[in-house]
Amino acid sequence: MSAMLEIAALDAYYGRAHILQGVTFAMNRGEVLALMGRNGAGKSTTMKAIMGLVPPAGGTVSFEGQRIDGREPFEIARLGIGYVPEDRRVFSELSVMENLSVAQRPARSDAPHWTPERLFQLFPNLGRMRDRAGGAMSGGEQQMLTIARTLMGNPRLVLLDEPSEGLAPVIVEEMAKTILALKAEGLTVLISEQNLHFAGNVADRAAIIEKGVIRFTGTMDELKGNEAVRSQYLSV
C-alpha cells in the first residue's frame, strides 16, 4: 500500500529566496508526523506548497496517488486536505458558527464527518460562545476555532502549522490532547513544530528540515536518541 502523501524533490521560491530546495518525504495513513526545524527552515512554506498557497517551482506532491501540485488551493482542500495556518487567521468579524459554516463541505465516506455539534464535544469552550465574533476570542480559543473550522471540511489529512506557538503551557497541553483525539478518529496529521517536548507527546515520526532540505526522518524515539541531529538542526 502506497503512502498517503508523497512529496518528492519539492522546490519553492518566495520572491527571490529559494526556500524549498528539493524537499522529499512521505506520510502514512493515520500517523502524526512532526516537521521540525528552525524558524525560516521551510516548515511553513512546505505546508503552503502542499496546500497550493505557494506555487511549487519543481517537484511533485501526490495525495492518495494523485498529483496535486499546481492545483488551486480550493481543489486541494476538496480532495480532503485541511490546513490550519500558523497565525490562526480566524474570520474576526464572523461569529463562531459563521466561521465554521464557511468551511462546511459535504460528508465523504473515507473520512470522519464533522458537524458543529460534534465539534463542540471536542471543543466545549467553542460551544459556549457560538455567537461570539472570532476577533473577540483569546488566542487559545482562536487556535481551537481554526482547527474546528478546518475539520468542517471533513479532511483526511490535516496540516497544523506551529500549533503550540504563542500559547500558554496549559493550552498547549490541551492542544496535544486535541491532536491525539484527531489521530484516534483516524485522521492523518502533519504538524510543524519547534518544541521537542510537544512533538514528543503527539508525533509518531519526525522529519527535520534545514535550509529547505530534509536532513533527517525517523521515529520520535530515534530522534530522541540522536543527540547529534538534535543539536545540529534543532539547536536544543
Partner: peptide, 13 residues
C-alpha cells in the same frame, strides 16, 4: 499551575 503552567508535560516539565 492551574490557570497557566499545567502539568509541564509539553513544555519540558
Amino acid at each position: 499551575r492551574a490557570v497557566y503552567l499545567g502539568t509541564g508535560a509539553t513544555s519540558g516539565g
